[in-house]
């Protein structure tokens, strides 16, 4: 869990895995998820292992999520916007699924 040292910023409502949650103005999507206690934000494409943001600067790609239906978004680089629908990116696609 991460804690905010300063609570002044404007709340921004969004959803994570369909659940209504709240971040703050100035958050990246990854920062908002970490502040909500979500350390695991994707499952890998090889083994399906859980992963979460590692570098927070756009180089590791471990924070990939689905945002508004679009996959492979780098949560650490995307500024949070009100009303975003964010989902975990789940592993590899299964044939026929």
């Amino acid at each position: 869990m991460f804690r905010r040292l300063h609570e002044g910023a404007t709340p921004l409502p969004f959803t994570f895995e369909g659940e209504a949650v709240e971040g703050r103005e100035g958050d990246s999507v990854a920062a908002a998820l970490l502040a909500l206690g979500h350390d695991a934000t994707r499952e890998t494409g090889v083994s399906g292992a859980p992963r979460g943001p590692y570098c927070m600067m756009g180089v590791c790609f471990d924070c990939l999520v689905m945002i508004d239906g679009v996959g492979n978004r780098q949560a650490c680089l995307v500024p949070l916007r009100a009303g975003m629908e964010v989902r975990r990116q789940r592993g590899r696609r299964k044939a026929g699924a």
Partner: peptide, 25 residues
Amino acid sequence: WTLPGVMSVGAAQTLLKAQGLVPEG
């Protein structure tokens, strides 16, 4: 080092500088 909950120091510092977040626990 790939487990959720493990991250780089630079990542944590980015959360501090950009969002004023500190790790708890």
